[in-house]
Each structure stands twice: as C-alpha cells, then as structure tokens.
Design a protein around this nucleic acid. Sequence first.
DNA 1: GTGCGATATCTCGATGTCGAGTAATCTCCG
DNA 2: CGGAGATTACTCGACATCGAGATATCGCAC
Lengths: 181, 181
Amino acid sequence: MSSNLRSMTSDPDARGPRREDEVDRIVAAWRRERPDLDVEPLTVLSRVSRLARHLDLARRGSFARHDLEPWEFDVLSALRRAGEPYRLSPGALLTQTLVTSGTMTNRIDRLAERGLVQRLPSPGDRRGVLVQLTEQGRARVDAAMSELLDVERGLLARLDTRDRERLAELLHDVVAPFDSP
Amino acid sequence: MSSNLRSMTSDPDARGPRREDEVDRIVAAWRRERPDLDVEPLTVLSRVSRLARHLDLARRGSFARHDLEPWEFDVLSALRRAGEPYRLSPGALLTQTLVTSGTMTNRIDRLAERGLVQRLPSPGDRRGVLVQLTEQGRARVDAAMSELLDVERGLLARLDTRDRERLAELLHDVVAPFDSP
DNA sequence: GTGCGATATCTCGATGTCGAGTAATCTCCG
DNA sequence: CGGAGATTACTCGACATCGAGATATCGCAC
C-alpha cells in the first residue's frame, strides 16, 4: 500500500510511478459503497478478466492481418501443436479449446469450407472423425503464431525476465487446480 | 526453473511440488514443433486467457444461485458502485463493461423488463438517458457480490497475502497501458 | 451372438454479441 | 442566429455459441 503514497511528480523508481488503472477505481468504489466487504480478491481476479478481454482484442487485430478469426486460430493451433500429421479428433479439440461439441462441429464445418482443414474417417471407429490441417492451414497458422508472439512480447515489455517468470508461476498456482483434477 | 528439479515425492516446500498444468503442455508442444520461436510470452498470457475462462464458469455458477447472468451482474454492479442514487448513462456503462452500444441497449432492455433497472430521461440533454438501479436490483446485486467474493477468495486460497499482493501488482503493470491512454 | 450402457459426433432452436447505419439533439464557431 | 460536425442512444441483420437431444457405433457382460 505504501506505493499509494508516492509523490505525484516524476519518480526514479523501478517501473516509474504507479499509475491508477480501472481496477483501482473499481476497488476504491466498492470500498466506499460496501465497507463491510473484503474486496481484495478483485485486485487480482478483475485484472485477470479485464486483461483477458484486452488480449482478445489485440489477438483479433493481429489475426486479422492473416485473415483469421480468433476461434479459427484456436482450432488450427491445436492441430499444429499436435505435430505431424496434424490430425486430432473433434473430441480432443473440444477439451483443448474449452467449447461445447455443437460449437466444434460448426467450427470444423466452416474451416473445411475455407480449405484450412479436412475431415477424414477415423480408422477403426466408424463413429469417429479425424480433423487434419491442410498445407494451406499449416502455413496460415504458422504465420499467425509468429505474429501473435510478437504482439504478446510487446504487451509484456514493461516486465523484466524475472518478473515475467514470477507472474507465470503465480498464475500457474491459481489455474493448476482446474487443469489437474 | 529450479522448481522443475524438485523431487517427485512429498515436498516440504511452500506450495508443494509443482503440478503440470495445461499451459505447460501447450508450451512444451510448441517448443517441440517450432524450436525457432520464442514462446515464453505464452507462459504468462495463455494462463491469463485460460484463467479468465475458468473464472467465467465459476462466476456463472455463483450468480445462478441469485438468478443472475454474468452480463446482468456486470451492468448492475457498475450501477451499484456508482453510489446513490445508482444512476449512470448508457455511455458510461459502455466504457466500464467493454461492450458495444448495441449490446448495451439490448442489456438495458432486458434488465428493465425484469424490473432490475429503469430508464429515466436525462435532465438537460434530450438525447440522453439515465439507467437507475431499482431497489430489487440493488438487493440482488448486493447478495451476488457477497457470494462472488467468497468464491473468488476460494480460488486464491493457495496464495498467501504476500503472493496475492505481488500478483495484483504484476497484473497491474501489464494492464495499465490499456487503462490510462 | 445379443443386448445394453457408454461414447463420438452432429442437429437445431434459442440467445447474446457485434458493428454498421440511423435519428435526434447538442455545441460551437462565424 | 444558423449550420456543420460531434455526440448519444437505438435499430437491425449477421454470426458464433450454447445445450439438450438425436443418431450411429463401440465394447463388454452374459
């Protein structure tokens, strides 16, 4: 809390004077309106929500330069990560992208129409389907990934390596319970 | 990185042995497939996106007990924070909730139908409208906020006070450029 | 083999959001 | 005062998602 008492003039501190962000204003408003509540969790989790929202917008702009929607990138990148021959079942794609099965069917339909993936019958299970990246899809997602990383590096530029590691580790500790049940 | 070398057996360390999360797997896959790229930004920002997604689901469950959708809570809580008489213009609500004007009109319509807010003509500007929380809306959002904070506290329980402060501060440094232009 | 619960994918109607365009009103300069 | 441009909120069609249900197939017990 001591940082709130810093001088308003220029400050030789590491990251410069602390600027108020929208969550600071939100938290201050709640403390005024509901002094009976402990709103400390908002200082972390509201920032997570808002940052995710801004990140979505930045991703949208970055992908647009490669004629891709964010949801398209999500599917293509899961296939790309899987490695040759870039094939996954719709079910595997579901769990990686956190959407429902109806949504995934719809996504695969449209990606196939655009020629970025193709459906193959699953060998040995006639219920199943395999989704495979086309060569065009692979090229597209590789280019978009490279640019996405440039943009993300820009967003993190104010933190040094040590701070980024610390941030990743703290976030890890919060998400871990969700990912390993 | 030293934590990766920890023993697999029980560990007296602060947060226990590091468990692999989904982002660890994603990052490892990219390093295998694209060793030419520096994917370090993903260790932070992919966790932010995934955590936001899980947080949405947790909020949804928590609000359902008060018969509120997340988008309803977002609007009502902005009005609640504004303090008596709990009135804001649609424009002010836009900037706080990061949605478009068409979306906001639609939200206000439905909240008004449910009797949680009402539209008032803006005094001194006949283009304008003011949205005001009804008594029923105020009671609803107060109850939901209290429960939301309980849920969020649970999500952060694995971190001690010092770590939560550090996490909030690091997130602040990343979002700040978006919020103060 | 036959039957049955589990699994994989798809179908489809309801819903919320986006985003470009519209209409009314305000502001301010000349 | 008058008119151009800015501002405010709303309209409306396109689109992506959800989620419950339908369909086909699999695997296993008997």
